[in-house]
Computed example of a mutant assay.
Amino acid sequence: MKIAVYGATGMVGSQIVAEAVRRGHEVTAISRKGAPVEGAAVVRAADLADVETYSEVAHAHDAVVLATVPDRTGGSRQPYIDAHRAIAAVPTAARLYMVGGFGGLKTPDGTPIKDTPGFPAEYKGESDAVYVAYEALRDAGADLTVQAPAAVIAPGERTGEYVTAVDVPAAGERISSQDYAVAALDELEQPQFRGTFFTASN
C-alpha cells in the first residue's frame, strides 16, 4: 500500500510511519520542513494548506494520514481548520485517516467529552478545532476514518494489544503512541471502522 503521512515528524505521525514501514508499505513522509524520517521512501516538505500539493499526494497514494495538530504556541487555530476545509473540497479516491482527539468522543448521553464540565480548559480550544476539521471532512463525504487516542497518549511500549470502541471511550485510560500506530495500520490494512470515529486504548 502507498501511504502518505502529513505530520510525519510528530509523536503520532512518526510512529505511524515507523509501523507502516515495518509492515512493508511504501511511505511518503510529509512535514513542514521536510525533515528526514527513518524508513520513508519519500520525504516531502509541504503544509496541509497547500491544496495543490495535497491533491497531487492524494491522487498518488492509497491512503493519506492526517496527523497534524492545531497551533500550540498561542497562535490562531483557524489556519488548521481552514486547511481541512480546503482539502475537503479536493476530490480523491484515497482513503483519509485522521488522527482525532479524545475530546471528540461522546458520553453515554451523546455529549462530546470536550463539552462536558470536567474537560480540562487548556485542551478545549484544540479539541474544538480538531472536531470542526473532522466535521468538514465528514460533511464533504470523504472516505474518512477518524481514530481518537485514549485520554492519555505518550511514547511507550509497542505491545500490539489494544481495545477499541466507536464514538465513546474504550476501556483503559492510556495508549502508547506505538500502539496507536499499530491500531491505525491494522485498520488501514483490514478496515473495520471505515466511516466512523473510533478509539483505541491499551
Rank of each mutant, 00 (worst) to 15 (best):
A63Q: 09
R85T: 06
G156Q: 11
R138T: 03
T53K: 12
Y80M: 15
H84C: 10
A148I: 08
Q78W: 07
T68S: 10
H59T: 13
T145G: 00
D128G: 04
A93N: 06
H59L: 14
V64N: 02
V163P: 01
A150Q: 01
P120L: 01
T107W: 08
R72D: 15
A60T: 08
E161V: 10
Y123W: 13
I81N: 10
E161T: 13
G110L: 11
D82N: 13
A60K: 06
A142S: 14
D115N: 14
R95Y: 06
Y80V: 12
H59F: 11
T116M: 08
V99Y: 04
F102S: 01
A150F: 07
G100E: 01
T145Q: 00
H59Q: 12
E161F: 10
T73N: 13
A170E: 02
V163C: 03
A133V: 05
S55L: 06
P108V: 11
Y54M: 10
D82S: 15
F102V: 03
Y162S: 10
E56I: 09
A154V: 12
V163N: 02
I153W: 09
R138E: 04
K106C: 07
T92Y: 10
D115W: 07
V65W: 07
A151V: 09
D109Q: 07
Q78M: 15
G74H: 06
S76W: 03
L137P: 00
A88G: 05
V166T: 11
D143V: 12
G101S: 10
Y123V: 15
Y162K: 07
D82I: 12
G125Q: 14
D139K: 14
P108M: 10
Y54D: 15
D109F: 08
V51G: 13
H84N: 15
V69D: 13
P169K: 06
D82P: 14
E52S: 15
H84K: 08
V152G: 00
A140R: 04
V64T: 05
L144G: 01
E126T: 15
V57W: 11
G100V: 02
E56S: 13
T159E: 05
R95G: 04
Y131N: 14
M98Y: 00
A86T: 03
R85S: 07
V132W: 06
I153N: 03
G75M: 05
G101R: 01
A67W: 03
Y123G: 12
D143T: 14
A150E: 01
E161R: 09
A121K: 13
E56G: 14
R158Y: 12
A129I: 12
E135T: 11
G101K: 03
P108H: 08
T68A: 11
